[in-house]
């Protein structure tokens, strides 16, 4: 068994689109250590969500194609596990999920209580793997001891995510509670199976800024308390800085750099990362963007996909994609011309 909880290696995923096949993930690597909160940072459309959904095994069936690679979770390649077994024993049990939009991710026609209790029925941490795919079919009376125990556990979780009036919330329908409360509920549901990994796909984008901070702190504290690893996708570097232990940055379907939070912000090594940090607004400084625009994934540039916009690009950058090289302890970069120490754009 490796010490890392999750190792994604050489993952290649393409999507069939009207304009041709889009190479959405191009041999991507990602590592998540045990108990670590890893930020997956990148612009919209860079493949963050696709990577998250690949790990969960819920890529759109009709259009997405997983072409190569391994997703090793706790020493087992998830891509080689039988899909039914994956659904019964991994998804919602060892890996759970916090969606981007808490408004549309609840089923509108069932009470919150009905949805959480259903999840409990199938994903209770007390079930063992052999029962996990079956137990839910047994009819269960609302007065039964099992039901009451499950309900107590759910109420306890709702208190942990600091929801006011947990009993009342269970009787409500999703449209009757606020966005912040819904996202607290989503966090509670993600914690419910006592997973090893939570995949949080931009969990705060749909919320007000004031609520974002509360939710982030809550997620961070609970994950740390329970020793759960989190993969946290975001396009907001500030958010990543606040809660992540380490950061992997993606650009146009390729990961560019992976480092500890501190290493990432203080010693950015990839030209893209440097430009990215430089483009953060600072007091008194002028706003600077990155010239050019993100490439179309149907016909991406060969080699390093950042090469058309990179000031250091040479011929080799346009021919083959650089291998992973080390830029320090726990600091990986994929670049032929990493930015030298003195030229780096470090954040103070």
């Amino acid at each position: 068994m490796t010490s890392d909880l999750l190792r994604v290696r050489d993952l290649k995923v393409s999507f069939a689109t009207d304009g041709g096949t889009a190479q959405v993930l191009d041999h991507v690597n990602l590592t998540i250590g045990r108990g670590q909160i890893v930020g997956l940072v990148g612009e919209s459309g860079c493949g963050k969500t696709t990577l998250a959904r690949s790990i969960l095994g819920v890529l759109p069936k009709n259009s997405a194609r997983l072409e190569a690679g391994t997703i090793e979770f706790d020493g087992v390649d998830l891509l080689r596990v039988d899909p039914n077994r994956l659904a019964a024993t991994v998804r919602g049990r060892r890996i759970s999920f916090i969606p981007q939009d808490p408004f549309s991710s609840f089923n509108p026609v069932f009470t919150i209580g009905a949805q959480i209790m259903d999840l409990m029925k199938w994903k209770s941490p007390e079930l063992d793997d052999a029962d996990a795919g079956r137990s839910g079919w047994l009819p269960r009376l609302h007065g039964s001891r099992r039901y009451k125990a499950d309900r107590e556990r759910v109420l306890d979780l709702l208190r942990q995510v600091q929801l006011p009036d947990p009993e009342g919330v269970l009787k409500k329908y999703p449209h009757e509670v606020s966005g912040g409360q819904r996202q607290r509920l989503m966090i509670a549901m993600a914690l419910l199976p006592e997973p090893k990994l939570i995949i949080a796909d931009e969990p705060t984008t749909a919320l007000d800024v004031t609520i974002q901070a509360q939710i982030l702190k809550l997620l961070r504290d609970l994950a740390t308390d329970h020793g759960i690893s989190v993969l946290f996708t975001t396009h907001d570097l500030g958010t990543a800085w606040e809660i992540c232990d380490s950061i992997t940055v993606m650009y146009a379907g390729q990961e560019m750099e992976a480092a500890s939070s501190e290493g990432f912000f203080k010693r950015p090594s990839h030209p893209y990362t440097n430009r990215l940090l430089k483009s953060l607004p600072s007091r008194g400084g002028s706003l600077s963007g990155i010239p050019g625009s993100i490439p179309a994934l149907v016909d991406p540039p060969t080699g390093c996909r950042f090469n058309p916009r990179c000031e250091f690009a040479t011929d080799i950058c346009r021919q083959t994609r650089p291998e992973v090289t080390s830029a320090g302890p726990g600091h990986d970069v994929r670049c032929y011309h990493p930015v030298a120490e003195e030229k780096r754009h470090a954040l103070a």
Binding site: V58, P99, P108, V109, W122, G136
Partner: peptide
């Protein structure tokens, strides 16, 4: 094709429950 079905799948709910309970009611 809704987000809640994606969520239910991501949480590993059995396909039959998703289709005949959650989807059908909607």
């Amino acid at each position: 094709n809704s987000n809640y079905v994606m969520y239910e799948e991501a949480m590993g709910m059995p396909r039959r429950v998703i289709v005949w309970k959650y989807v059908l009611r909607n």
